[in-house]
Nucleic acid binder design. Structure first.
Lengths: 189, 189
DNA sequence: TTTATAAACTAACAATTGTTAGTTAGAGTT
DNA sequence: AACTCTAACTAACAATTGTTAGTTTATAAA
C-alpha cells in the first residue's frame, strides 16, 4: 500500500470514532469534523454510513476466515493449531485495533451484510471447536467441555483490542507467547 | 422483592433492548412499544433515557464492588479468591444477562455517572491484580505476567453474558467449576 | 360522593439525523 | 485557453430524536 486513498482515510477515522462511542452514536457530522471537511463531502467518497461499517467489519471477518483456513490446512498438532490461532488474533488485533471494536460491538447494524458476517463467524467457531475436539480425542488436550474452552479462549482473544492500546508498542511474538502459556499450559496433559 | 414496580419493569425491558441494539440505537419509542404504551408515558416513571442506563450499569457495578470487597476481606488463599471471583461473575452474569451488556458496551454514555463508574472499575481491577500478585509472591501461582493473566481471566468472565443465553438453564456451580478448571488449572504450580 | 393519585393519553417542540442537489475552486490535460 | 476531474462547498430535505405540557381515565381513599 503506497498511499492511503481518501476513502480509506475516512474508513480508518470512522473506525476510530466507532470505537470511542459506538456506531450508532457517531454522526456523519462527527466524522466529517474529524476529517476537517463538511458532512456532505464525505459522500464523494463513500456510499452511506452503513457502507463504512460494512467495509470495516467484513474486511476483518474475512481476514479471520483466511487465517483460519490456512491453519486448518496445515498438518500441525492440535495444540500447535491453537497457538497459531492465538497468533492470528494477536496479529489482527495489533493491526486493526479500532476496527475490531466495530466487529465486536456493532456487527448487529450490518443490515444487508449481516447474514454473510454471521456465516463467517459461525464457520470460524466450527473450525475452532473441531480443532479442540480433535485435540481431546488424540489426548493432546485434557478432557474439558470443548464449548467452555472455546468460549474462554475466544473471549480473551476477541477482547485483545481493548487491552493492546493500553500498552505501548506491543511485541506480537511476546504477547502471543504469554497468552499461549496462560491459555494452553492449563489444558495440555 | 415481592412485586416488580413499573419503573423496574421499564428498566428491565430497556436492558433487554440495549443488549440487542446498543443504548444509542434504542429509541424511547422502541422502548415504549415494547412496554405496550406511548413514549411520553415512560416519563411518568423515569427521568430520562440517560437515567435508565445509569440505573442499569451502576447497580451492577456496585454488585461487583460489594462482591469483591467480601472476597478480599476473607482469609482464603489467592487461588481460592480467584475461584470466588469466578463464582461472583457467574452469579451476576446469570442474574443480569441483559444489564451486563450495557455495562460492557455502553458505559461510555453514562455522562454524569461516568467518573463514578470508572472509579469502581479501576478499584475492582486493582483488587484483582493484587490477588494475582500475592498469589505469585506466595508461589501459589506460576510466574506469569499479572496483567496478562488478569486480562485473560477478566475477558472470559466479562463475556459470560454473551454465552450464557445460548445454553439453556445454566447451573452456576457447574459452570463455575468448568471455568475454574480451565482458567486456574493452567496457572497453579 | 368527592377527592386524590397513578398512569396512561394526544399533540407538539426544537434539535439532530442521514442524505441529496446543485455549485465552486483548483489541478492537471489537451 | 478550454476542458475534465476531483473534492470540497452551501443549502436544504424529510424523518426521527428525546422530551415537555396539558389532558383523560381508572382505581382507591376519604
Amino acid at each position: 500500500m503506497l498511499k492511503e486513498t481518501r476513502k480509506q482515510e475516512i474508513v480508518r477515522v470512522a473506525a476510530k470514532l466507532f470505537k470511542k462511542k459506538g456506531f450508532s452514536a457517531v454522526t456523519m457530522r462527527d466524522l466529517a469534523k474529524e476529517m476537517g471537511i463538511k458532512a456532505a463531502s464525505l459522500y464523494n467518497h463513500i456510499d452511506s454510513k452503513q457502507a463504512i461499517l460494512q467495509e470495516i467489519v467484513i474486511a476483518i471477518a474475512e481476514d479471520f476466515t483466511t487465517g483460519m483456513q490456512s491453519i486448518i490446512a496445515s498438518d500441525c498438532s492440535s495444540l500447535e493449531k491453537l497457538e497459531q490461532i492465538i497468533q492470528l488474533h494477536v496479529k489482527i488485533a495489533i493491526e486493526n485495533t479500532d476496527g475490531l471494536s466495530a466487529l465486536n460491538s456493532d456487527w448487529m447494524h450490518l443490515e444487508s451484510k449481516l447474514e454473510y458476517y454471521l456465516k463467517l463467524r459461525q464457520d470460524y467457531e466450527s473450525n475452532f471447536r473441531h480443532i479442540i475436539e480433535t485435540g481431546i480425542a488424540s489426548k493432546e488436550i485434557r478432557t474439558v467441555n470443548p464449548d467452555v474452552l472455546m468460549f474462554s479462549m475466544l473471549s480473551t482473544l476477541r477482547t485483545l483490542y481493548l487491552w493492546i492500546p493500553k500498552k505501548g508498542n506491543v511485541n506480537p511474538k511476546e504477547l502471543s507467547a504469554s497468552l499461549a502459556q496462560i491459555l494452553i499450559k492449563g489444558i495440555n496433559i
